[in-house]
Computed example of a mutant assay.
Amino acid sequence: MTPEDAAVAPRLVLATRNAHKVAELRAILTGPDGALPWLDPAAVVGADAFPEVPDTVEDGVTFAENALLKARALAAATGLVAIADDSGLAVDVLGGAPGIFSARWSGRHGDDRANLELLLAQLGDVRDEHRAAGFVCAAALVTPAGEEVVREGHLRGTLLRTPRGDGGFGYDPILLPEGETRSTAELPAEEKNAISHRGEAFRALAPEIARVLSA
């Protein structure tokens, strides 16, 4: 953050300490083609801006519940409008797993490589025609006054057998979106954001964000 950025008062706090996700959400919301291009990117901060606020235990049983838990806690602690998402990969042949456990599928939270390698090993004998899967995102907005809104987004595709691409994070290198020849990790950020589950969810949430910030 530049000194000029630091002078901008935060207006919206993102319930994540993941730098990749903060950058992606800023682009989705405030970039040139973003849902809220009038909003100063410097006014959108991640949870790292409030190191004294503890992380929320994500013990919900749905993406929406976990997103709301995180947004509620941050809105209450900071007095700012908070938005959060919970997202993951749902594999058809696994009945929707890893689902809400996507970030800790290997037993170590946030270990993208271990999670991806374990999933590929579990699906090693699954034929290509049965490797359908999709990313799911629930995006939640919570105001300090207690107003709550949730919107969802989806990105369907097929799971590759080996990772491809260096972009993105999480399971991006193994999902081939429908109609694409490139993995999610091979797409430029602008193209990915235009079709992603997270982009769809936050674009749907954007009118509500605009409304509460303008109130």
Rank of each mutant, 00 (worst) to 15 (best):
H130F: 11
E148T: 14
E178C: 01
R127I: 12
L155Q: 06
A185L: 11
T143M: 09
L176A: 00
P144M: 11
P188L: 10
E147P: 06
E178T: 08
E152D: 09
D172P: 00
C137W: 00
G168V: 09
E147F: 11
R164I: 10
E186R: 09
G153Y: 09
P144I: 12
P177N: 08
A185I: 13
E180I: 01
V136Q: 01
A132V: 06
E191M: 10
R164D: 07
V136L: 11
L141D: 01
G167T: 09
F169W: 13
V149R: 02
P144F: 12
L123Q: 11
G134H: 15
E178V: 04
E186C: 06
P163H: 06
A133L: 07
L187T: 05
G179D: 08
E180K: 02
A132W: 03
S183M: 10
V150R: 00
D125Q: 14
T158A: 04
G153I: 04
P188R: 10
H130M: 11
G146C: 10
V136G: 00
V136E: 00
R127K: 15
G134F: 12
E152Q: 14
A145H: 14
A185K: 07
G179T: 04
D166F: 12
T181N: 04
P163E: 04
G179I: 02
T158N: 08
R156S: 10
P177C: 05
T184M: 12
G165T: 12
A133P: 01
V150A: 01
R182S: 06
D128F: 09
D125P: 09
I174F: 09
D172S: 03
G167F: 14
V149C: 04
V142Q: 06
G146H: 13
T162R: 15
E180R: 03
E152C: 10
G157M: 02
E178L: 02
A139I: 00
L175M: 06
L176P: 00
P163F: 02
S183H: 06
T143Y: 08
G146E: 12
R156K: 09
L155F: 08
A133V: 04
R164T: 11
L160N: 10
T143F: 08
T162N: 15
S183W: 04
R156T: 14
V136N: 01
G153M: 10
V126I: 11
V136H: 05
S183R: 03
G170Y: 02
D166S: 14
R156G: 12
